[in-house]
């Protein structure tokens, strides 16, 4: 069972994850049209790149934009959640040990307490994300079961992984649940709106190019995000 889950199934998950995301990016770029989007993407490359980078970088910085500044609580929630999700699995010691065993490679790892904190932070911030979906009418009207499902898919690997790492009773169960939920997440990313893993950069870059090339980027100082 363990061999299958961490063997062929893991390969398949990574295959879908990487190929799926590549397809997403290619499809996005191919679907851009200077005439339909009314942005001369290829004619003013330097303005385009500048606009795209500004648009991406300011939004990647906590409190880098007016939105992030005017909603500090959401900003903290948002960044804690996303940083935890991205950093923890990549730099987790346990994952690196597996990599070392399988392929003989590994990289920097997080100290145990840091990894634990990040994991708990992901779970807690997800909980708050659920609460705000219920509590705030402007979020509630947009929310459907699908949004909760995606949150569950995202948090499950962290929850199960954390329990497995604690070696609680029923360890094999939590370990398997962790592997399976991780694989579900990998597969879900390109197939659902979790594809914003890459499409965030595409969409932000596109709007940045729009402002950089057409909407004032050539005349002003660049949009104050």
């Amino acid at each position: 069972m363990y061999q299958f889950l961490t063997g062929p199934l893991l390969w398949l998950s990574f295959l879908i994850f990487f190929i799926g995301l590549i397809v997403r990016v290619v499809w996005y770029v191919r679907g851009l049209s200077w005439q339909m989007d009314r942005v001369a993407y290829t004619k003013h490359v330097s303005h385009g790149i500048k606009g795209a980078l500004r648009s991406i970088i300011f939004w990647l910085l906590p409190f880098g934009t007016r939105r992030w500044k005017t909603r500090p609580a959401m900003t903290i929630l948002f960044f804690v959640f996303h940083i935890g999700i991205v950093i923890t699995p990549i730099f987790l010691l346990a994952h690196n040990i597996i990599l070392k065993e399988r392929w003989g490679i590994s990289w920097a790892t997080l100290p145990g307490p840091v990894a634990d904190t990040l994991t708990i932070a992901v779970i807690v911030s997800a909980l708050f994300l659920v609460l705000r979906r219920i509590a705030f009418s402007e979020v509630r009207i947009l929310t459907s079961a699908y949004d909760y499902l995606l949150l569950a898919i995202t948090v499950a690997p962290f929850f199960t992984g954390f329990l497995a790492s604690l070696k609680v009773a029923g360890y094999p169960f939590w370990l398997y649940a962790h592997i399976i939920s991780g694989e579900i997440m990998l597969i879900a990313i390109p197939l659902t709106k979790l594809s914003h893993t890459v499409l965030f950069f595409m969409s932000r870059g596109q709007l940045g190019m729009d402002y950089g090339i057409k909407r004032g980027g050539m005349k002003g100082r660049g949009l104050a995000w």
Partner: peptide
């Protein structure tokens, strides 16, 4: 793709 992506990835 621009419009469809906007519709699809809206995180609500």
């Amino acid at each position: 793709s621009r419009l469809r992506t906007w519709l699809e990835i809206c995180a609500h």
